[in-house]
């Protein structure tokens, strides 16, 4: 470990703001794009299944009306 105490670690020899700013924004962006991909998978599944249900309903209604 390069730092003696936790507050040393946070202050990064006076450069804390810049180091934590870049690591923080990096983590935020990585997390953001990961969550976006994750959620869009669920969204895709939902959208496709909804569309399939709708198509099935239309088919059924057509058969009943005959």
């Amino acid at each position: 470990m390069q730092f003696n105490s936790f507050s040393d670690f946070i202050s990064m020899g006076g450069y804390g703001f810049y180091v934590w700013l870049s690591f923080g924004s990096c983590a935020l962006i990585l997390l953001g794009i990961f969550l976006d991909s994750k959620l869009s998978h669920q969204r895709t599944l939902n959208a496709v299944s909804k569309q399939l249900e709708r198509e099935a309903r239309i088919k059924k209604a057509k058969q009943e009306s005959k």
Partner: peptide, 27 residues
Amino acid sequence: WVWGLGFAPADYQQKDSYRIIFIHVPS
């Protein structure tokens, strides 16, 4: 991140600010 932030030694010229290299260069 743990290695780069906590265990890698500080640069003699740029001190701890150089630690940004560990995400700047890869990205």
